[in-house]
Structure formats: structure tokens, C-alpha cells
Design a protein around this nucleic acid. Sequence first.
DNA 1: CCTTGACCTTCCAGTCAGTGGAAGGCCTAT
DNA 2: ATAGGCCTTCCACTGACTGGAAGGTCAAGG
Lengths: 131, 131
Amino acid sequence: MNIGQAAAQAGLPAKTIRYYEDIGLVKPRRDANGYRAFAETDIHKLTFLARARALGFSIEDCRDLLALWEDTDRASSDVRQIAKEHLQRIETKIADLQDMRDTLKDLVRDCAGDDRPDCPILNRLGDQALT
Amino acid sequence: MNIGQAAAQAGLPAKTIRYYEDIGLVKPRRDANGYRAFAETDIHKLTFLARARALGFSIEDCRDLLALWEDTDRASSDVRQIAKEHLQRIETKIADLQDMRDTLKDLVRDCAGDDRPDCPILNRLGDQALT
DNA sequence: CCTTGACCTTCCAGTCAGTGGAAGGCCTAT
DNA sequence: ATAGGCCTTCCACTGACTGGAAGGTCAAGG
């Protein structure tokens, strides 16, 4: 299977797949003409990667998860640990964004949004008294 | 005021301030020895930038907001528009992260996390049937 | 006067995870 | 034979910094 089909199957851009090969996540063999030839196992790996990335795992996390996935003897506790740490990072990020959102919401609500130059948003961002 | 003091005042790393000068956000004058000399208005700008960045505004948003802030004649509706668009992006990001979190939570909950090799997390990521 | 150490300067490279594009080779159909 | 749609590699760019090297400047202490 050429890279175009592989991309369609895995739901990843061809460029991304080439990049994943560059950094050693997949190692498709090559046809005589130099084209990448993806086997079923490669597609399977790419699909795994697409899903893990969609869940926000970093490339390095994905590398670890792939290794564990390929290791039939692995302990599920290793996987769970990676997932739990990732979950914690996501929770933190959500909380940070929610703080931002709340502040922004207040600012937007207080801003008349008309033609007058007085703007609570800019006042708040530039207020010396808050420095 | 040298960059060290400016950094302390604005709550930004000196490196970041140099970077902001590079991309034209601040333009401190220079002393005879080549050191940057930050005036009060520069500090004020840097503080503004630090706050806007902390609220997640992009550098380009900050550039626009700074321009509006310096324009005493601006209409607050312009600012409000930028803030509202940013707010929308944040809401979307929060929703995305919450989806990830929910999925991950389910996976972590279902994973025994012991020494047995069977792991629902990997099963889910690699399941062919979901392809 | 000399040295030490803290500060400052510029410039280059790297981060993360790709993305865009150029230049050129290959393959199939007409 | 040629058109087009694939494929290849390689290089540069993204955002917003961050790290580090090599070297200049300044104030204090001996």
C-alpha cells in the first residue's frame, strides 16, 4: 500500500506519516521504485498513533505507548501511569483555560463595545495600579 | 532602567523582552554602552503584554491590542471583537480538552493497572474494529 | 590598578509537531 | 508522446520563546 492509501486508512496526512517515519515511529519497507510500502501492521500502528495523538498524548508518550503495545508481556500499570500523568496535565490545562475564560468573560461583559474610547478591557490590561 | 529591572517589574524573562523588541513590540532606547534603557512607558507596555499573554492572547492579538491601547481615539468595539474571538477559541479548546479528559478518564478507570498484560487503554487505541 | 562576578550584548540553534513548497522521478491512460 | 496524478527528498517556516556561547561593561573589594 502506497502512502496515499495509508494516509486515507489511518486518517493522517501523508506528510505526517513521512514525519513519523523520520522520527522512527514507523518503518515501512520500500518498493523497488523507492515508494513506501505499508503493510497491515504499519497501518495498524498509524491508526494507533492517530488515536493516541487525538487524545493529546505527546509524540514521546506515543513512542512509549507503542512500545508497550508491541510488548505482549507488558504490565498494564505502565500504560496506566502514562495515561494518568497525561490526564493530570489535561486537567491542569482545562483549569487554566477556565480561569482565562472567566476573566475574559467579565471583561467582555463590562465592555460597552460601542464607539466610545473608554474600554474596560484595555483599562484592565494597562492599569498601573495593578502592577 | 536596565533589562534586568524591567524584567522584574514586568514579570517577564529578560530573554522574552529581547524577543519582544526583535519583533517590534517594544522599542527601548539605548544607553551609550549599548544597554537597553527602559522608560516608564516601556515598562507599562511590557506589563500590558504580560497580562494579555497570561490571558492567552496571541502575539498578533497583543500587537493589535497594544495599538488600540495607544490610540486614545479607538473604539472599544474593536477591542471587544478581539476579546470575543479569543474567548470563542478558548471555549472551543476547553470543550476539546474536556472530551479528551472524559475519554481518558474512562480508559484509566477501566484499566486494572496491575501486572497483567491485558490493558483496556492499549486495546482501545489499537482495536482494529474501531478503524 | 587588578580582579571577580554580576550584569549586559549579539547571534545561533533548538523546542514541538508538523506544514508548505520546490524540483524531480514514476506510473497509468489516452 | 504526453498529461495528470502519484511518489520521492530536501529545505524552510510556523509560535513564542529558551538555552547557550562568546564577548563587552560596570561596581566593589583587595
